[in-house]
Design a protein around this nucleic acid. Structure first.
Lengths: 335, 335
DNA sequence: TCAAAAGTGTTATCCTTACACCCATGT
DNA sequence: ACATGGGTGTAAGGATAACACTTTTGA
């Protein structure tokens, strides 16, 4: 075991250049549409990219401090909640035609921009996150792209024989479709965003699969417009971020960073719906957040929402001391 | 924004050596005691270390493949469930007296060793994980170390004024104690393993804090034996792994990797209790796993458990297709 | 006979889900 | 008048937690 002894220098890392970068999926909500901060620099077929920053250990003590710093410096945004998502180290994830083979490890982060915050930057801008993953927005019913494009193509893919190079999996293709996309009465789980994206990638239905010259891509289907693609594996990072945020909303009071200081319950509900991508039962939502102790009335009212004037509420901080995992425990899917 | 444009080479990473390593918290259960695979190489005051392997991009396509490979080669263990935990990049985390300042980023993993698997290796061995985090085992009631050592010292720490260099936090020290350790009727949340370890580190009560020469350490208290320390930040990785596994058990059928192919419900329960560190209500546990559809009777019986012979069960794979998040949804804390 | 573990049955309570219905405002 | 959102009440059903009690084995 001398080879894995921790005091040994891991010298095998020296024979290839390794770079470490930070990728941030910065999320805000404007007009009840979740937005993601993207960079458009005109290269790479105009595909958008997530903000990318180098990690420089001598400047910043931790990843998170470094991330907050460069986001602040480059965009003026003061981030709220920040959460490490995943570290992506796949060989060739930054591979480009004619590349030298330098290997980049990137640490993906989810970050929330406080309500109302605007980036002051020319080539970075908010962009609707459902533009990249349109099958995730069920607020106007089942997304059309799912029934017209995704379902028939995925069913064809499931009917195809496995490629010989394909690794053995515990589940068959059609079982995976049932679990991830809810085909055949499987039910839609709004948290499985990453699993869905990866299945679309694996089946070659997503533009990035063709770009990466995967065996499956384009061999058996022409590519429809399944969401706007992104550079590198940034759409995978975005999918990870969306899944994580949807899960987190249920047991941490993170929504309140995406909402003004004072809000009506309906505004709060629409913000949650924007994130979850589905509608919630109004009365149950109100009871839920109220007797979970998440909010308290400010005493003020507002008439700006149309209809009867509404009470304004604020986040009730004391809930952090009262419950181990305070959050909006919604079961998505109601109307 | 040119500085953060993704197509630019992140050249600021070049001016310090960066190494990437993989750290694995490999968990098995023997005789209803969770075990962790540790390396003892005699250096560094005989502190144990987690198995550590270099990441070599040209040998392995992904982190996980690389991890499985070197664990297999070095220990003969064929890992089951593998989950990325967190990427630790703190400056100085590998700092040693007289160090050159090389910076190591380590990607921490949780891995499960299938039931019965034994490492065939001289200087790596199973070691009880509660030896490192003894306050996490409530199976014999509240751990003594909590009442005799931890609680009084943490209360003294909470009463001390904040150090001037300390960053502002949303919660006061005594509020954090209530949340993490359940003081003053806060209740014990078995998933907050990492939060508890980090609080002990921050308050200087853990040997690693003194080693790292934190300001707080030893300035106001002498160190008791608060669990066995580990090299580098490996105990933090272990705490992360324990918290993650405790959470995961509830919504993924991971326990079944730690249990023989056929098992009695009581054996399953004791395995879950070993992980959660607390006792469960027997009848409710049985009903829970049975009508969650997690198990099915094999038809056989065993008399080896003492007492009345018990039915043997096996994991019911079909549950993966039936429920979005199948797991042992226990609420810990019952007797 | 007793201890230990396997099982069965029941009850009270809470939470979720789903309906039904009324209130206040702007157009 | 009516559309829109605000707000209250309640009833059915299911899941959970906590008890009590019987059965079958080995020592």
């Amino acid at each position: 075991m001398t080879d894995v002894a921790p005091t040994q220098s891991p010298d095998r890392t020296a024979d290839a250049a390794i770079e470490i970068g930070l990728n941030a999926a910065i999320v805000g909500v404007r007009a009840y549409q979740p937005q993601i901060l993207v960079v458009r620099d005109g290269t790479d077929a105009d595909w958008d990219a997530l903000p990318y920053g180098p990690f420089s250990p001598q400047d910043h003590r931790t990843f998170e401090i470094g991330l907050r710093r460069w986001v602040q410096q480059q965009t003026g945004l003061e981030l709220g909640f920040v959460d490490q998502l995943y570290t992506f180290g796949d060989r060739g994830r930054h591979a480009q035609p004619g590349d030298t083979g330098a290997h980049v490890v990137s640490v993906g982060y989810l970050a929330l921009a406080p309500h109302g915050a605007e980036p002051d930057l020319a080539d970075a801008a908010w962009s609707r996150w459902y533009a990249y993953l349109p099958w995730e927005d069920w607020r106007d019913g089942e997304p059309e792209v799912l029934t017209t494009e995704i379902e028939p193509r995925l069913r064809r893919w499931a009917a195809q024989p496995l490629r010989p190079t394909e690794p053995a999996r515990p589940l068959k293709r059609d079982e995976r479709l049932r679990i991830c996309f809810g085909f055949d009465g499987g039910g839609w789980d709004e948290e499985k965003v990453l699993e869905r994206y990866e299945l679309l990638y694996e089946s070659g239905l997503v533009a990035e699969a063709k770009r990466d010259e995967r065996e499956a891509a384009d061999a058996w289907t022409d590519l429809p417009a399944l969401g706007r693609p992104m550079q590198f594996d940034h759409r995978r990072v975005l999918a990870t971020a969306m899944g994580r945020l949807r899960a987190k909303v249920k047991y941490r009071p993170v929504v309140f960073e995406l909402v003004p200081e004072a809000f009506t319950l309906f505004q709060l509900q629409m913000t949650v719906e924007a994130i979850m991508g589905s509608h919630l039962h109004k009365q149950n939502f109100r009871r839920l957040v109220e007797n979970a102790g998440l909010v308290e009335a400010t005493g003020d009212m507002t008439a700006e929402t149309g209809g009867r004037p509404a009470k304004l509420f604020r986040f009730r901080r004391e809930v952090l001391l009262e419950r181990p995992a305070p959050g909006v425990r919604v079961k998505a899917g109601r109307a």
